[in-house]
Amino acid sequence: MNSNWPLWEVFVRAKNGLSHKHAGSVHAADARMAIEAARDVYTRRMEGVSLWVVPSTAIVASDPKETTDLFEPAADKVYRHPTFYTIPDGVKNI
């Protein structure tokens, strides 16, 4: 069998209240080892309070070729943003 350890993506929560953010990846034979490697590799300087590790193969990514189809249609929906609306001068708290 293949004795190369699979790749895991590492996500670190810097402190409670923030979401986990992608930090990098490690190779590990199992999930526990991946957590420990992530700890030893990505939190040596108190960078985190919580870790996620995800097998890299489990990540489904959007295709860059679809980028325009996926994301450009959002560009003209300016009415989703508060700055789109005109409010009389002097009206507060809205």
């Binding site: 350890w5 490690v26 190779h27 080892m33 490697a37 030893d40 040596r44």
Partner: peptide, 11 residues
């Protein structure tokens, strides 16, 4: 045996 293990032992 592996870079990840090297870092762990050093820690």
């Amino acid at each position: 045996p592996m870079l990840e293990v090297d870092l762990a032992l050093a820690n």
